[in-house]
Design a protein around this nucleic acid. Structure first.
Lengths: 131, 131
DNA sequence: TTGGCGTTACGAAGGTCTTCGTATTTACTG
DNA sequence: CAGTAAATACGAAGACCTTCGTAACGCCAA
C-alpha cells in the first residue's frame, strides 16, 4: 500500500485549522473548534476527523493529555509561509520572486510605511550578506 | 440546479493549461498539448476535457476557427496573479501583504540578484510616490 | 462497579478533480 | 455522395476532500 500522493500542502480546511494551532501553539480538538467563527458551525466529530487526517499527513503530531489528544504543528508558520511562496512563485510567477513583489507592490493597497519597512528589511538582508 | 460552488481559482491542472494560454495569447487544444513537457504524456481527449471545463467555469472563452476551437483566457495573467496574492495574503498572512514580502525576503533560498531586483523595484515605487 | 459524558476511531455519503475511452460531429477529398 | 482524419461531447472510473453519524473507548463520580 503506497503512501498515496505526497501531500505537501494544506487543503482549505486544514489551513483553517492550522491557523488556529499556530496561534495557540498547541491545542485539542475542542480548543480549535472553539476558536472558529460561530457561524462556521462544524460538528465536533468533523473537527476531530480533520485533525486525525492532518496527523496522518504529518502536518501535526499528537500526544495524550489525560483522555484527550493535544495537537502541535510540525512546521512553524514561518516555514510553511516560505514554502507556499516558493511554490506559488514557481507555478504562477515564472520562478522569479521579484515579479511577485512587483505584482504585490502594484496591486495591493500597501501603505508608504509598509513599503519603507520592507526596504529597510531588504537593506539589512543585503548588507548582512555582503559581510 | 444550482450553479454549484463559485469556483474562483484554477485547479492545479487548469493553472498548467492557463499558463500556456497566457504565453500563447490564445490557442487550440493541440497548441496547449504540444507545449506541455513531453513526459507529461496526457491524452488529447483529456486536454480537450480540461479546456471545456475551464470554459464552463468561465476561465476561458472559445471561438470556432474552421473545425477547431480557439481558446482565450478571460483574465489576464496580471489580474489573476493579483487575485491570487490577495487571497493568499488573507488566508496565510493575516491580511497584511507587507508580511508576505518580509517572508519572501527572509527566505534563505532567495538569490542575491533577486533581492537586489526587489529593492530596485521598491525604490522606484517609493520615489514615484514622492513626486 | 456501573452509569454517563466527552473523546477518539471508523465508515460512508456527496462533492470535486483528473484522466481516459467511446461515440458523435465536422471538414475535406476523391 | 461516401470515406477519412481530426476534433468535440459525453460518461465513467478512481482519487481526494469535507462532513457527519455511529460505535467504541476512557475517565470519573455515586
Amino acid at each position: 500500500m503506497r503512501q498515496k500522493k505526497k501531500s505537501e500542502f494544506l487543503t482549505e480546511v486544514e489551513l483553517e485549522f492550522m491557523t488556529e494551532l499556530w496561534a495557540l501553539g498547541e491545542g485539542t480538538v475542542r480548543d480549535v473548534l472553539t476558536r472558529l467563527a460561530p457561524e462556521r458551525d462544524l460538528a465536533y466529530t468533523s473537527a476531530a476527523t480533520i485533525l486525525r487526517i492532518m496527523e496522518q499527513k504529518n502536518f501535526v503530531t499528537s500526544q495524550k493529555q489525560g483522555k484527550t489528544l493535544l495537537y502541535r504543528p510540525v512546521l512553524a508558520k514561518d516555514a510553511y509561509q516560505a514554502k507556499t511562496l516558493r511554490d506559488l512563485s514557481e507555478k504562477l510567477f515564472d520562478g522569479t520572486p521579484a515579479s511577485m513583489v512587483a505584482r504585490l507592490v502594484d496591486d495591493q493597497g500597501m501603505s508608504e510605511d509598509a513599503l519603507a519597512e520592507i526596504r529597510a528589511l531588504l537593506d539589512r538582508r543585503l548588507t548582512d550578506n555582503d559581510s
